[in-house]
Design a protein around this nucleic acid. Structure first.
Lengths: 189, 189
DNA sequence: ACAGATATGCAAAAGGCGTTGCATAACTTT
DNA sequence: AAAGTTATGCAACGCCTTTTGCATATCTGT
């Protein structure tokens, strides 16, 4: 549930407690280890109350993650595939990098990869929902294009985090741009 | 558990019952809806017996899915990225297409996307485990390359299935090859 | 400050997971 | 065919999820 600030004070108190404790726990343990029971005990609310707002824990996770999508859409407003692809890749990588440990914790919780697709989709949807298919592309080609480009970025970022970010961001961006933009047929040297 | 045929007959009976009923159920309902309890009742075995062989249901799913990886590795033996990328993409798409409804059911059960990465990894690992990093590539570039190429293929295939395969295979292959090989900077027309 | 609305807590229930110890059944070996 | 091995079934357990009805506490509007 997203707070507008106009709700009953009990609601705001409850939601904040859930959110705050959930985010804390995400930093302490992998998502899969967090039980409704433990979260409720920690947030000092009743299980019933939790279920009043979130059908499942996954919904809560999704809600938290989705709040990262909005600022990104804002940041890249006006940018378009395929023309601005370099900038978009750069923005994505640097944006993710700046989001801090919570963001990475959720992404690394590979168990819930479905949510990442959703994230990537909504990151582009918020920006692209009004966008027409570019000239010369069929509907299917365009869908394929977005799938390909989005998927690569998020998976590459995720693997990069998993690997402890041993490569500097800028180098990572450069490699990604080269690979995604110039294609996979290229030979090095 | 993979049967060699030399086991105690009780074991073979049990494992077959589990596998057969599990595969049936996968065609009837999404993976997440299948409970250990229901599977055991249907297979007419005790829960204890199930857990003797599979720590979790995920392991069972993985086992079933992984059996698709071996023939694919066989099929593409000797092929290498990046040189044979066109053939590899073509092989992947057509191979998947020929696997029938069970394969698609597992893949569409998007909930369990983690396993697809595993699938894709093992599809290439079985083939590439002995392969050195190509000349002129750094370790990281090569990892990035594989991530990118593998991810795209599996996600594109998955989306294609989700969309009811409205585009013919060969066209799908062509589009994928073009996009992955020639890169995402290209403009149509 | 009061009345009405409504969110929360509590307790209990049904159901699934994963584990245990033990008796019994089925299999293999000789 | 008997002896020894080992897989299965059974019953019960502790734990977690998700839902329920109802009483109580807390909020909001006036």
């Amino acid at each position: 549930m997203i707070l507008t600030g106009k709700e009953d004070m009990r609601i705001r108190k409850t939601i904040s407690a859930i959110r705050a404790n959930f985010e804390e726990m995400l930093l302490e343990m992998p998502y899969e280890k967090i039980s409704v029971k433990a979260l409720c005990e920690r947030a000092m609310i009743n299980k019933t109350t939790f279920y009043r707002y979130y059908p499942t824990m996954d919904d809560l996770l999704e809600e938290v993650l989705m709040e990262y999508a909005r600022p990104y859409a804002e940041l890249t407003r006006g940018m378009r595939y395929p023309d601005d692809i370099e900038v978009l890749i750069h923005s994505f990588m640097t944006y993710c990098t700046q989001q801090g440990p919570l963001f990475d914790a959720i992404l690394s919780s590979g168990a819930y990869s479905k949510i990442m697709w959703k994230l990537m989709d909504s990151m582009s949807e918020e920006r692209d929902h009004d966008v027409k298919i570019p000239e010369g592309w069929t509907e299917e080609e365009w869908q394929l294009y977005l799938t390909h480009v989005n998927m690569s970025q998020i998976r590459i970022y995720q693997k990069w985090v998993e690997g402890g970010r041993s490569v500097p961001v800028e180098r990572m961006v450069a490699m990604t741009v080269r690979l995604v933009c110039d294609g996979a047929r290229i030979r090095r040297k």
